[in-house]
Design a protein around this nucleic acid. Structure first.
Lengths: 195, 195, 195, 195
DNA sequence: AATGAATGAGGTTTCATTCAT
DNA sequence: TATGAATGAAACCTCATTCAT
């Protein structure tokens, strides 16, 4: 019983493989093998290697896609005319990030804390902290944020966001989590406080 | 009888294996195999399994040891008589944690973000966030910290500490990092600010 | 229609494929794959199989072509009128063979000592030994060569030629090699010696 | 149904694997895979890699063993007291080599004309030509052989021996082959002929 | 208590050949 | 006649774990 061939446009086939991998890794990051991916995608083993030279290349493609997707959904917040409400913008970003992260499930560790992540670090310019730092700087210029170190504070707040998302995933009430994060960010950046 | 057997007190043997594993994992978490550990420890392969039923059991033992060690070195801050300076205590803990984390090198991801970590989550009561939450509660009762949600805030601040340590490891100046973290914690917990 | 199709006269296409294969195998007999050949020939993978049913068929075609080419360039030595100088004729053939063999590079083993060679032996009538044996017989009839067993001696002298070519390829001085071969052949066939 | 373990002394296990490989390669040099060898040797796949890092390492070990074996069976020819009969000694070596080569079957090409052979050439000092050249030199000093170039002539005569063995394997009568080779060697080396 | 040879499931990657277009 | 995406049977190699000694 031969499997009938499904001839696809290469771009489509690639998409299917990526999608299949994403679906599986979400569920159980470990234990996903090339074999599983092609089975899920309805392709043959060799087909995988037509599109990705190694397993890590697939992961890299997946990571890039996630970045693209996040950037598409949480677009540059500015573009406004009236004085921007920076704290609100920040809160918006936090919500978007938490939602995105919650939705990532198993992908996160597989892409950001695996051997893969160690071997292929995220390029500096991608990733949330850079965006967040830019936002802090802009807010500071507008007088909406206090005089904190933008880059390091951005990294730490981003880590806090990430942790908040984890907490939500582990069962904490999402409103509590969001409120606590809002409080933390508000306090961390308010211009009304100078220690 | 090629290699003479080294008969050891079981506790010593176990310690040697753990120490060997720690040394190797620090260096390169992936790529460490049972074989390497026993070679480093001067034992035979089978001996490993007299002390650890599986590889993950070794990791768990290692994680526990790290917790013990951290708790031993960063002792409960209280025990004092005069009014405690809570912010200072917190800063002390942060410094201790950063130092500890910096010194962990490859251990961190191997123990906290690997497949192992997913399969065997850290027991609630161990780990920094629990201690930190306790500290926040105590500080709040003493009027030294503002009215934030203790557990969630503890988690987020802990994540920030962790990120700070990462930043230091990646080359950021340790004083800058510590200062930024102090600022963040101070702002996040100060009682003088109510949004 | 990405690549424009190159419609060729079948004979031309076949020639191109053969030439491409020859070029590549010369360089590195192992490691040459169908994929490489079609790339080198500017054709698509499937096209290969329109001209050669299997990879071994290509090799066989290549081997035949080499035989043809050798026979064309080292033409039947006779055609003469005066008494033929048989030893000189033999030396001429040896020189031609060495030159040819030197020029074959990686082709030799790929065509004569590979799994392919085992599965498809050279037809008796092709190949140097047969020609050489004929020459020895003719020379014997003319009284120019001694009474040695023509077929076996031809095989062995041919092997010696081949070895001489190898020696030259490995860096021995071509004149030394040729001289040693001439001496061997002269001694092996001289009529002036009967043990 | 587990296969019961056969625990062997490492040297014995290695011998068994080599012997199994030799048996199979003799029969059909291509088509022999690690899997076949371990099956023939009654071992598990992983066991192979305990003894040979790669397939080519096995082939190299096999080649070395063959050399050893040949040298053991065709010992240094000298050791004599009276004037040595050099031609007879040479004929003896030729017979030994033919016998050995005939007995090698599929091993020859696998070890001397495969990709393996190209990647790991025979060390100069092993192999027949070196021994043969030494013999020619000794014979020349004793006045038993004519003034031919020893090294190149040795190579060519060795190739002739090899071809003679091939002829015998292909069905030529062994006595004819031996006689033709004797004649060739006698003529090639006789001191009574100077062209 | 200790050893280290042996196991074998698991995973990756390659490439001749097929076949839908 | 030509294309090139797709196939899937090999083959290789690794390493946690077992077990006979």
């Amino acid at each position: 019983m031969r499997t009938p061939r499904r001839r696809l446009d290469p771009a489509d086939r690639r998409r299917e493989l990526l999608a299949a991998a994403e679906r599986l890794i979400r569920r159980r990051a470990d234990q996903v093998r090339v074999e599983d991916v092609v089975a899920e995608a309805g392709a043959a083993k060799g087909t995988f290697y037509l599109y990705f030279a190694t397993w890590d290349d697939l992961l890299e493609a997946l990571r890039n896609e996630l970045f693209d997707r996040f950037e598409a959904q949480a677009p540059e917040p500015v573009e406004s005319l009236d004085p921007i409400d920076w704290p609100a913008t920040l809160r918006g970003m936090a919500r978007a990030y938490i939602a995105f992260n919650l939705e990532m499930e198993g992908l996160h560790d597989a892409l950001f804390h695996s051997d893969f992540a160690r071997n292929r670090p995220v390029p500096r310019h991608r990733g949330g902290p850079a965006r967040l730092a830019a936002m802090i700087r802009a807010g500071q210029e507008a007088g909406a944020f206090g005089p904190v170190a933008p880059d390091l504070t951005a990294r730490m707040i981003f880590a806090a966001m990430h942790e908040a998302a984890d907490a939500a995933r582990e069962g904490e009430d999402l409103r509590d989590v969001t409120a606590a994060l809002d409080t933390l960010m508000n306090r961390a950046l308010t211009p009304e406080f100078a220690p």
